[in-house]
Amino acid sequence: LTDEELVTMSVRELNQHLRGLSKEEIIQLKQRRRTLKNRGY
């Protein structure tokens, strides 16, 4: 997933992508998404 996709994707879509990932990967992705959102994309 690109940063842009992460930010513009709805939470529902995101959760579908996260299905099948490990807990660590999910946590990393969610942190990255929060960081991007805070940057004001």
Score class of each variant (00 low, 15 high):
residue 7 V to R: 08
residue 9 M to P: 02
residue 7 V to Y: 08
residue 37 K to N: 05
residue 39 R to H: 11
residue 16 Q to W: 11
residue 32 R to A: 01
residue 1 L to E: 01
residue 25 E to V: 12
residue 31 Q to P: 00
residue 15 N to W: 14
residue 34 R to H: 08
residue 5 E to H: 06
residue 2 T to S: 11
residue 29 L to F: 04
residue 7 V to W: 06
residue 32 R to H: 03
residue 1 L to P: 05
residue 40 G to P: 07
residue 6 L to A: 00
residue 4 E to I: 11
residue 16 Q to S: 09
residue 25 E to Q: 12
residue 24 E to R: 11
residue 5 E to N: 05
residue 9 M to V: 03
residue 9 M to K: 03
residue 36 L to I: 05
residue 33 R to A: 05
residue 4 E to Y: 15
residue 27 I to E: 11
residue 17 H to C: 11
residue 19 R to A: 09
residue 40 G to Y: 14
residue 11 V to R: 15
residue 18 L to S: 04
residue 18 L to F: 14
residue 22 S to E: 05
residue 38 N to G: 09
residue 31 Q to Y: 08
residue 22 S to M: 05
residue 27 I to H: 11
residue 21 L to A: 06
residue 40 G to I: 15
residue 27 I to R: 13
residue 33 R to T: 03
residue 10 S to F: 01
residue 4 E to H: 15
residue 35 T to I: 15
residue 5 E to G: 03
residue 14 L to K: 01
residue 35 T to D: 14
residue 18 L to K: 02
residue 7 V to K: 07
residue 29 L to K: 02
residue 11 V to E: 12
residue 23 K to L: 11
residue 8 T to L: 09
residue 21 L to I: 04
residue 17 H to P: 00
residue 33 R to G: 00
residue 12 R to Q: 12
residue 29 L to V: 13
residue 22 S to D: 06
residue 36 L to K: 02
residue 39 R to S: 13
residue 14 L to F: 15
residue 16 Q to H: 10
residue 14 L to S: 00
residue 10 S to L: 03
residue 20 G to N: 09
residue 7 V to A: 09
residue 10 S to Y: 01
residue 27 I to Q: 12
residue 5 E to L: 08
residue 7 V to N: 04
residue 4 E to F: 14
residue 27 I to V: 11
residue 14 L to T: 00
residue 12 R to S: 10
residue 4 E to P: 03
residue 36 L to Q: 02
residue 39 R to P: 09
residue 6 L to F: 00
residue 2 T to Y: 02
residue 5 E to M: 13
residue 12 R to D: 09
residue 41 Y to Q: 13
residue 9 M to N: 02
residue 37 K to P: 01
residue 37 K to W: 05
residue 21 L to N: 02
residue 40 G to D: 11
residue 8 T to H: 14
residue 12 R to Y: 10
residue 29 L to E: 01
residue 13 E to G: 03
residue 21 L to M: 12
residue 8 T to G: 11
residue 35 T to M: 15
residue 40 G to F: 13
residue 30 K to V: 14
residue 33 R to F: 15
residue 25 E to K: 09
residue 33 R to N: 01
residue 3 D to P: 02
residue 1 L to K: 02
residue 16 Q to V: 11
residue 36 L to A: 04
residue 33 R to P: 00
residue 37 K to L: 15
residue 20 G to W: 07
residue 4 E to D: 10
residue 31 Q to S: 10
residue 29 L to A: 06
residue 6 L to N: 00
residue 4 E to N: 08
residue 5 E to K: 07
residue 9 M to L: 07
residue 3 D to M: 03
residue 19 R to D: 06
residue 40 G to E: 13
residue 32 R to S: 00
residue 14 L to W: 11
residue 32 R to K: 05
residue 22 S to I: 03
residue 18 L to Q: 02
residue 3 D to H: 02
residue 26 I to D: 01
residue 5 E to Q: 15
residue 2 T to W: 02
residue 33 R to Q: 06
residue 10 S to K: 04
residue 12 R to I: 07
residue 29 L to S: 01
residue 19 R to I: 10
residue 18 L to G: 03
residue 14 L to R: 00
residue 38 N to P: 03
residue 8 T to Y: 08
residue 19 R to G: 05
residue 6 L to S: 00
residue 1 L to S: 01
residue 22 S to Y: 02
residue 11 V to W: 15
residue 41 Y to F: 14
residue 38 N to S: 09
residue 38 N to Y: 09
residue 29 L to G: 00
residue 4 E to V: 08
residue 14 L to G: 00
residue 30 K to S: 04
residue 19 R to Y: 07
residue 18 L to H: 01
residue 35 T to V: 14
residue 38 N to L: 11
residue 8 T to P: 01
residue 22 S to P: 10
residue 36 L to E: 01
residue 19 R to M: 10
residue 6 L to Y: 00
residue 27 I to A: 12
residue 41 Y to N: 13
residue 27 I to F: 12
residue 26 I to E: 04
residue 35 T to A: 15
residue 32 R to D: 00
residue 5 E to I: 07
residue 7 V to G: 05
residue 2 T to C: 04
residue 3 D to T: 02
residue 13 E to S: 05
residue 28 Q to W: 13
residue 1 L to R: 02
residue 34 R to F: 05
residue 38 N to R: 10
residue 35 T to L: 15
residue 30 K to L: 15
residue 30 K to I: 15
residue 30 K to Q: 08
residue 23 K to F: 10
residue 39 R to V: 10
residue 1 L to C: 06
residue 18 L to P: 00
residue 17 H to Y: 15
residue 13 E to N: 04
residue 36 L to W: 01
residue 28 Q to M: 13
residue 22 S to C: 05
residue 37 K to V: 07
residue 33 R to I: 13
residue 1 L to Y: 04
residue 17 H to V: 11
residue 27 I to G: 07
residue 2 T to P: 03
residue 5 E to S: 04
residue 18 L to A: 04
residue 18 L to T: 06
residue 11 V to Y: 12
residue 40 G to K: 11
residue 24 E to D: 11
residue 34 R to T: 06
residue 41 Y to W: 11
residue 15 N to K: 14
residue 41 Y to D: 12
residue 35 T to W: 15
residue 9 M to G: 01
residue 23 K to A: 09
residue 29 L to Y: 06
residue 6 L to E: 01
residue 41 Y to C: 12
residue 27 I to T: 10
residue 30 K to W: 15
residue 31 Q to N: 10
residue 12 R to N: 08
residue 38 N to M: 10
residue 15 N to Q: 11
residue 40 G to V: 11
residue 31 Q to D: 07
residue 15 N to S: 09
residue 32 R to N: 00
residue 6 L to T: 00
residue 1 L to T: 02
residue 30 K to N: 05
residue 23 K to Q: 10
residue 24 E to V: 09
residue 38 N to H: 09
residue 31 Q to V: 10
residue 11 V to M: 12
residue 12 R to P: 06
residue 16 Q to R: 14
residue 6 L to Q: 00
residue 2 T to L: 04
residue 20 G to V: 04
residue 28 Q to Y: 14
residue 24 E to H: 10
residue 13 E to M: 07
residue 10 S to P: 05
residue 14 L to D: 00
residue 40 G to W: 14
residue 21 L to E: 01
residue 28 Q to K: 14
residue 20 G to M: 06
residue 20 G to D: 05
residue 3 D to R: 01
residue 25 E to C: 08
residue 23 K to R: 12
residue 31 Q to I: 13
residue 17 H to R: 14
residue 19 R to S: 08
residue 21 L to T: 02
residue 21 L to S: 04
residue 13 E to W: 03
residue 18 L to N: 02
residue 4 E to M: 12
residue 23 K to Y: 10
residue 35 T to H: 13
residue 32 R to F: 01
